[in-house]
Amino acid sequence: MFRDFFDRAHWFALGGLVIALFYLLFFSPVDGSTVRKQDKRLELVLQEKARIAFLLETYAPVEELAAAGNRAAALLKLEELERDFPGEAHASILRGSLLLEQGAIAEGIAAYVLGVRQNGDYIDARSLLGRHREITALVEAELPLIKVRVEKSPNSRTWNEALNNIYYLQSRLAGGCE
């Protein structure tokens, strides 16, 4: 490996490059172009924060109407927003909550499932958008009742679908890899 000039030249160059790399990594100043290329994580964080802020602001009228007990108007407002932002997970979650409060159990659960499938953040306890506690309460309250309905009408497709949906939420609440 150190036999002749060829070997020694290579070792010399190798040593030089390792030193240069070491210097580059730990001592050289970071120039502007590097900063622009390396801020990917920051971009993602900003995107996420902006997204959350946008959603909270956009859907604030719905939340306000719901908080005032005017769930029917809140649902209509959601429908109006749907024209601009169709298929948004946040709308599905809000719709789920409003439908459940009005007694549309199967449809409410289906809306929650749609929202969680579109964006797993809603099942997360640590996400700013998370509805972990709300969905936990939903599963705990409705699972036994839906089981009873399915036992009473084992062939009811509507309630069997609702049961599958609530099992999905239960499974997502249990965690695991996605």
Binding site: N164, Y167, S171, A174, G176, C177
Partner: peptide
């Protein structure tokens, strides 16, 4: 049912 990271 309700198992983490499982499907049917």
């Amino acid at each position: 049912y309700g198992q983490p990271g499982a499907h049917f």
